[in-house]
């Protein structure tokens, strides 16, 4: 191993990396929020009384889960504008792809969470004279949410990691800056190692939180 590490390259260019990090965080959080909302809507469609709605929601979930994210982001950025006639910015395309992708997984998490609550809970709530809406709001959903938190946390981690692929359409997030800097400074080792470290620092606390929630659930 005849390579010398030049950490100065990292510290010197840390500003770029941090700019990229900020974009990554914004991109991921916005997509996560949208994904949580859309995922809930899809999950409710999956549980609806009308078969057509259930089928449509199922198709949405299957399509977004059975195709690679890279294929999805390229399709949304290059192909979708041709269909709609509207061009998309890289950020918009990134948000659309990330949220739809996450929403498909989250929809399944929601569905499993809601169905996982024992039917006796609903019966007890109804027996007290609650309406379906009251039973859902006061009894079912609070319990379901607690159950789902670890799985939602996992999806969040995946989302943060997937955001790196949006660099391919030239969105200037962390990975994009890493690749640019690496080409510019010719010091890929330091730059990419630092980038990997930053991603790890971003997702590791989330992983710890997920583990904690998981253990707490098993105890109760």
């Amino acid at each position: 191993m005849s390579v010398t590490w030049d950490l100065g390259v990292v510290t010197h260019n840390i500003g770029y990396l941090l700019a990229g990090l900020r974009m990554t965080i914004v991109l991921s959080l916005v997509s996560l929020a949208l994904g949580l909302a859309v995922g809930l809507a899809i999950a409710l469609l999956r549980l609806s009384r009308w078969r057509a709605l259930r089928w449509a929601a199922g198709l949405y979930i299957d399509v977004w889960r059975s195709t690679p994210f890279l294929a999805q982001i390229l399709w949304v950025f290059y192909a979708l504008p041709i269909l709609t006639g509207y061009a998309l910015t890289a950020f918009t395309a990134g948000v659309i792809t990330l949220s739809c992708h996450a929403s498909a997984y989250l929809a399944e998490v929601y569905r499993a969470g809601i169905l996982g609550i024992s039917p006796g809970q609903r019966q007890a709530a109804l027996a007290l004279g609650m309406t379906n809406a009251q039973a859902a709001r006061r009894i079912i959903l609070p319990q379901a949410v607690m159950q789902m938190l670890p799985a939602i946390g996992s999806q969040s981690i995946n989302l943060f990691k997937e955001s790196a692929l949006v660099s391919i359409i030239n969105l200037q997030e962390l990975m994009w800056y890493a690749e640019s800097l690496s080409g510019f400074t010719m010091r890929s080792v330091e730059i990419f190692s630092a980038t990997a470290l930053i991603y790890a620092l971003l997702t590791y606390p989330q992983a710890l939180a997920v583990n904690y929630l998981h253990r707490r659930q098993r105890a109760a």
């Binding site: 006796g120 007890a124 709530a125 319990q143």
Partner: peptide, 10 residues
């Protein structure tokens, strides 16, 4: 009142 309780655990 139910056989399997159905108390609200949360």
């Amino acid at each position: 009142v139910f056989q399997h309780l159905n108390l609200f655990p949360h």
